[in-house]
Structures are given as structure tokens and as C-alpha cells.
Amino acid sequence: MEYEFSVAGEKYAVRVEGKPPHARVVIGERKYEVDWSQVPGGVISMIVDGESRTARVAARDGGLVVWVDGHRLDLDVGTAEDESVGRAGGGAGGSGIIKAPMPGSVVKVLVSEGEEVSAGQSLVIVEAMKMENEVRSPLDGVVKAVNVSAGDSVGTSETMVEVEPAE
């Protein structure tokens, strides 16, 4: 089984061979012999080439979050073999699909349909946990749709505003 992860923008291909509790894990040039066991509660105990490593793994939007011996890392997940484990399509990125950065409530919508906006311009103010956050346009363009209004609760998967990129 081969998995593709990226950590802080860097891509890694990770191959897992063998049957539990033994695994050979290959990351690039490195090969690791691992004795591993999963304990109820999400804990994975791994003895990696003799070193005891304790990890906890949980899902997050776009992949996994792994805690290992006091360090917490976000792993974005892609895949070579199993297409059902796909990468999330969330986030504004370079597209004109504007989502909330976190669940919260809409304080104010600053633009309306048909309005021209420029990159960096504030579109919506979302409040979460007593903090107001301005959600900005990632690009120049025209507002194609506004799907929220003040007072609405929003999750991270809902599209709040669509901006059609300028030609």
C-alpha cells in the first residue's frame, strides 16, 4: 500500500509492506522496520528500529493530524492506490470560491452581487469565539454570488461568496 502525504508543503510517498504487527515502511530512500499496535482510544504504539514512539492520529479537513512524542503535525493526504481517500477540496486557495476559515457566524457582508472586487479586499466578517475575522478575496474579479447574510451560521465547507476571476 502506498500513500502520498504532504507536510508543510513538502511531498512524501510512504509505502507500507507486511502484516501487522510487523511492517516495513519505506519513505524515499529510508526503510524502517516497525513493530506496531493500536490501542483503543486512537493510540498507536510503534517500535521503529528499536525506538519506542507513541502516536495519536485523528482526521482533519484535508487529511490527518498526527501527534507523535510531543510534536503535532498536519498531514495532507493524497493517494496512489486508494482513490476513496482523496484530498479535500476545501479552502479558498486561488479559486474564487470563498469559504469560512472556521465555523462561526456572519457579522457583516461587505459586498453584493455584481460588485467588482480586488485581491485582498474584505468580503465578509465572520465572528468565532469573540474574535472578528475578515475574509478577503484571493483575487481580482466580480462577485458572482453571495450565499450568506448577517446572522447566518457558517461551517468551513459552505461557500459564502463566489468571485468570478477577472479576465
Partner: peptide, 16 residues
Amino acid sequence: DVVHAALIAGALSLSA
């Protein structure tokens, strides 16, 4: 080595 340990844990949990 921390990144690799996390990758191993992630891959093993997905394989499981």
C-alpha cells in the same frame, strides 16, 4: 525523524 515518525503513524493508521 519526527516528520518520518508522523508519516509512519499516518500510513499505518490508514492501512489499518
